[in-house]
Design a protein around this nucleic acid. Sequence first.
DNA 1: GCGACGGCCGGGAAAATTTCACGACGGTGC
DNA 2: GCACCGTCGTGAAATTTTCCCGGCCGTCGC
Lengths: 220, 220
Amino acid sequence: MSAADATILLVDDHSVVREGYRSVLQKQPGLRVIAEAADGAEAYRLYKSEAPDLVIMDLSMPGIGGIEAVRRIRQWDKGARILVFTMHENAGFAVQAIRAGARGYVTKTSPPETLVRAVMDVLAGKIAISPDIDHELALSRLAGESSAADVLTPREFEVMRLLLAENTTEEIAETLHVSPKTVANLHSLIKDKLGVGSDIELVRLALRQGILTEVDLGEG
Amino acid sequence: MSAADATILLVDDHSVVREGYRSVLQKQPGLRVIAEAADGAEAYRLYKSEAPDLVIMDLSMPGIGGIEAVRRIRQWDKGARILVFTMHENAGFAVQAIRAGARGYVTKTSPPETLVRAVMDVLAGKIAISPDIDHELALSRLAGESSAADVLTPREFEVMRLLLAENTTEEIAETLHVSPKTVANLHSLIKDKLGVGSDIELVRLALRQGILTEVDLGEG
DNA sequence: GCGACGGCCGGGAAAATTTCACGACGGTGC
DNA sequence: GCACCGTCGTGAAATTTTCCCGGCCGTCGC
């Protein structure tokens, strides 16, 4: 435990899983886990008090999620090094995470070596993406699937969010203070722009692109 | 490592997570992890060759999922003791798991002690459910939400599955060899029986009840 | 200033879908 | 036999979706 060890903050809402990170990382010389958090808010607090060299962050967590935690930490410390380590084998999430300021994205299905390698790369200032996500990103590029966040105007995106969260056209019209007709028109336009034929496909696309998570839907 | 140790098979598609189980369990005397599997098929194969006293099983895995793996193992060995350990804090999944033959259901957010306790309980022949799921189950009972699997007839359930998986009414009519009109009628009837007003709500309910998982939707 | 453009809001009408009422058929239980 | 339920389908009404339209407003380039 020399003073030169790189210090690490682990963030994951599953304690048994944190135990796994620890076990893998402590086999690696030069790394030292100095703190653990179970949600985004705690992660932010601990980052400020502990100033670790690296954060390993899960995405799906109660309260403020991982993406938002990444954003806040980066806002507080522009140089923060955050490696996202998550179960989502989903290019959409990776794009969001990197845009939010993460320096790496590794899926939990990756072998321990990949995680260790990514930790080292991020500490060395590189960007680390696990191979499966690299592949996913390439595929989505090739498929040319429209990214909802890109092709939709802010208003359309908002309506889409509400469609997925609330239910009836009338309710949305009310919260937006526009006519139900407008919402219906937008709804149709959104499906058109996104190239989906049904609401069910719309939900699937939102899930695939990480606009929505399972827990968002389940709780609603 | 006495011969009297209880032998355990770990099943989880995330290697780092298996590392976590190991770390927690090996602190407990009387337990010995003898094998690990990364998916349902491998779990089944290893169960037959290793005959462990207990299986600790994740649910969301590539290929055949955890529920199906539980079913197969129990079919092969009526006395198999399987403890489901998953991220899904979802009463629907718990019901499915128990019906498939699991002897316990613990969420990954639970502290390590809860997992250890559940392992001991299941080995002792008891049924172990983590407190959060107990609570969820109680709530869903109180809310009296119609369980899709109960209120729907087999045919209706099948159509619902197809609606969530495929997309157009025509395609489903084709695969079922019935008129599109019938599918439309069923579609309407299903929403009525389930008390949902829109397709989006239908997806949400399916997710909540564990009829569908995020990966089902994403991959479609 | 002024014209072009794009986002936003909604009306109107045609087209498609959803919903409801109804009948037929086979299987099951009494 | 008879009642009941699940399945399948028709037809017509009700509703929604979709398409086409025009107006309003802010921005950009000239």
